[in-house]
Simulated assay, not measured.
Amino acid sequence: MEILLSNLPNPFAYFMPVFALLIVGEAYISYREDRELYNFKDSVASTWVGIGAAVFNTLTKAYQIGFFFLFYELFEPVRLKYLGYDNLGWAWWVWVLCVIGDDFNFYWHHRFCHTIRLFWAAHVVHHSSEKFNLGTAFRNGWTIFLYKPIYWIWMPLLGFHPIMIALCMSFNSIYQFFLHTTLVPRLGWLGQIFNNPWVHQVHHARNIEYLDRNHGGILLIWDRIFGTYLDKDKNLETQFGVLHPPTGHNPITLNFHEFNDIWKDVKQAKTWRERVMYVFGPPGWSPDGSRKTAKQLQQEWRANQEIPVPADAEIHQSV
């Protein structure tokens, strides 16, 4: 396994020049057209968070792939006995299945990052910027790599080679870099199948109606199947970031502020149920309703939309 890991190519190394050129190009368009897509302090924060994420990802890469190898080799006799093969090999169709399986895993990993507070604490840094640009793609949580492989266990168990899984995960991440921009319009029928910047803006928005939508990586089919897809409303101003943003641009604060808030809530909790819910409940959960989850906020928002408008509303407004 050590030989395989040492020979494992890092796809990101080949794409970094492309990423850099695109970020420079987007920043130039922003400056030329006065779009204010970038903010200096925000961009510096994204850079440091991205560097930290790259370091943590590198340090945990052996653990992640070793984790996959454990299940891959442990279940080889089981596959031989009950499925009639020792592994799935490297055929083209296996690669296709691996890409699809990886994207399915990413959807659920990503969705739970938004609906379980402990996982949200690891992921919130990615949403903390109020700017939506290509640099935002590098804002990845430093602790997310510790639990992310759990969602992929079934793949080495079935005989997908760990190296193939790791490469598919990398390609998925590379693809998602290109989602973080407001300069790409609707993509027609392609935009109905593949994740794209138009619908990913919904995912990064803090508009109440947009919360917890469009979790897919490459394909939109998972959001459509599991009821989380929402197209962007071109008539609605998209507001990026989180409802309760952290103070400042310190990368340490950006990565760990929500963990600190969880600890504060757990310490003041009155029952074990409250403690468990503060950790594993949805973000925003509170026992007395003083804070709201995304679902509760959306229920209130929908209720307000249904309030009938008085016939003389225009008269009152014009007076």
Rank of each mutant, 00 (worst) to 15 (best):
G227Y: 09
I193L: 15
A205C: 00
W142A: 01
G25R: 07
F138V: 05
I51A: 14
I218L: 13
W142R: 00
Y175G: 08
R273Q: 09
L146M: 10
A137M: 05
W120Q: 14
V276E: 03
I218T: 15
L230H: 06
R275E: 02
H123F: 00
Y151P: 01
W154T: 07
D233E: 12
F104Y: 15
V199C: 04
T271P: 12
N172C: 10
W198V: 09
A313W: 12
W142G: 00
L190K: 09
P77H: 08
F75M: 02
F119Q: 04
I23H: 03
L243E: 05
S290D: 04
V276I: 15
P287N: 10
G135E: 06
I29W: 13
C98T: 15
W93R: 08
F15W: 14
E209P: 00
E76I: 03
L179H: 11
A53N: 14
G25E: 02
P162W: 14
L4T: 12
W285M: 00
L5H: 07
K81T: 08
P17K: 10
S170D: 14
P282F: 04
N57R: 12
L37R: 02
V49E: 01
T143F: 14
Y175I: 10
Q176K: 13
G284I: 03
W92P: 06
L187K: 04
F259D: 05
T181L: 01
V96Q: 02
P77V: 09
R273K: 11
P77E: 11
L4N: 11
D231A: 15
L157M: 15
F171L: 14
P9R: 07
V319K: 06
H180P: 00
N214V: 00
G289H: 13
H123R: 05
E130W: 02
W90G: 13
H316F: 15
D231C: 03
L211W: 10
N7T: 14
G248H: 04
R273P: 01
A54W: 05
